[in-house]
């Protein structure tokens, strides 16, 4: 194409006459414009198509906007300064129960992350192309992880509620399975970047595969694994908060009930507790991550 040829010569060292420069410049501009025009057209077409599929109706949203404000309005509890404590107690009339549910939510996330990470730890080495004991094991492990992370937690949760009955047990198993897939993939990527010299050093002593992984690979990958594990824990707390919608335990059950029965102040009370817990856990985790990485930084010096 002549366009590219001329734009190539633009960057060459040969001096160009002004008219020539103008011509190439124009051609370059035109080509660029054409590319971006196509891009924009594709994007617009995609947006229109998706908007029709997604039944987007901005007028409808505009009509319902008053509902949004009134919805929020009704969520605000009656709090008066003189009777603050009484009002607060009224707002959180079921506080003890909610706190227990919140605790259960966190517990679900803790155990699901622990189980998921433990299994992902083993599978990451099986799945890493450079560490796997045999190529077919590597392929099988990667497919398993892919399946576990693509199926949403909620689908597993429904299945497990059906099999194990209503309650947090199903929730733990569902989130653990999904975390296993997600963490296994991330861990596997880290493991594939491990320094093979160190692994080889341990392998050459006659250590078996498990020992080689524990002594040759684990020390290298552990900080990254911990960091990803903490990140996953944050995600899992949120996931555990909605499992109750399908009967798999946690505060989601209370929240769903409140929304379904239009107990607006209950919704705000539970949501506030949940948000506070999530923010607290997020900051705790980022502090811990900072410590894991901070130690690394010092050691690297």
């Amino acid at each position: 194409m002549t366009d590219t040829a001329t734009s190539d010569s633009m960057v060459s060292a040969e001096p160009l006459h002004r008219s020539q420069f103008r011509a190439t410049w124009r051609a370059h501009r035109w080509q660029k414009a054409r590319v971006s025009l196509t891009g924009v057209l594709v994007l617009v077409a995609l947006i229109i198509f998706s908007a029709r599929l997604g039944e987007v109706d901005l007028a409808h949203l505009w009509d319902r906007l008053p509902r949004l404000t009134s919805y929020f309005g009704r969520m605000v509890p009656n709090l008066a300064w003189e009777t603050l404590w009484v009002d607060l107690a009224k707002w959180y009339w079921n506080g003890g129960k909610w706190l227990a549910s919140l605790w259960q939510t966190v517990l679900i996330a803790v155990y699901a992350t622990l189980f998921g990470a433990a299994l992902a730890y083993i599978f990451s080495f099986l799945a890493a192309r450079n560490l796997t004991p045999a190529p077919w094991i590597g392929i099988a492990a990667r497919r398993t992880l892919e399946f576990a992370r693509t199926v949403p937690e909620l689908v597993f949760a429904v299945l497990f509620v059906f099999a194990f009955g209503i309650g947090p047990l199903a929730g733990v198993l569902a989130i653990a399975l999904h975390s296993f897939g997600a963490l296994g993939k991330l861990f596997g990527d880290v493991a594939e970047n491990a320094n093979l010299d160190e692994v080889k050093g341990v392998r050459s002593t006659g250590a078996n595969w498990w020992q080689t992984m524990v002594y040759g690979a684990t020390p290298q990958v552990l900080p990254d694994y911990l960091s990803y594990g903490l990140l996953r824990f944050e995600i899992n707390v949120r996931a555990a908060s909605v499992l109750g919608f399908v009967g798999a335990g946690g505060i989601g059950q209370d929240l769903y009930g409140a929304i379904k029965s239009f107990h607006h102040t209950d919704i705000s009370a539970i949501a506030l507790m949940l948000i506070a817990a999530v923010i607290a856990i997020d900051s705790l985790c980022s502090w811990l991550r900072g410590r894991v990485i901070g130690q690394e930084g010092l050691r690297a010096l």
């Binding site: 599929l53 997604g54 039944e55 987007v56 109706d57 409808h60 949203l61 319902r64 509902r67 949004l68 919805y71 909620l154 949120r238 996931a239 908060s241 909605v242 919608f245 929240l255 769903y256 929304i259 949501a271 949940l274 948000i275 506070a276 999530v278 923010i279 997020d282």
Partner: peptide
């Protein structure tokens, strides 16, 4: 943005279902 992130998208979905009705919107 922290507060918004604190709630799972499923919770936001229930909320918007009760605002604009059932459907992908």
């Amino acid at each position: 943005s922290d507060v918004i992130r604190g709630l799972d998208s499923l919770i936001w979905a229930i909320f918007f279902v009760s605002i604009v009705g059932i459907g992908p919107f």
